[in-house]
Amino acid sequence: MPWELKPDRPIYAQLVEHIVQMILSGVYPPGSKLPSVRDLAKEASVNPNTMQRALAMLEEDGLIITHRTSGRSITEDSEMIRKTRTRIARDQVSEFLEKMQKLGFEKEEILSIITEMIKEVRG
């Protein structure tokens, strides 16, 4: 997954999102080890201090665990990973709903569009 960073948002916030995505998509499965701060920083071509800050935030959220001697690993708590996944999905949907409201759609209309499109995708 390439690290694409937008220039007009804090980098640490974008790194947090990117690493969460890597965890959810299984690049880093539950319980697996994370590369060192330096290696991750090099991979993303960012300042190690910024990477450190992103990892500290993920640690605060509980998604990453720091071991005293052996670096960092992803939490083994799959319930927490599932919750994070749901939270991100809800964020995405609420953003979508806001846009649809701006376009003047009612709740029922939105629902029927979604149902229709899901059917189409299933083919």
Binding site: P7, D8, R9, P10, I11, Y12
Partner: peptide, 14 residues
Amino acid sequence: SVDEIREQGKSVDG
């Protein structure tokens, strides 16, 4: 700090 600039929705370059 660079984060302060970006938190205002700007890039350093901008």
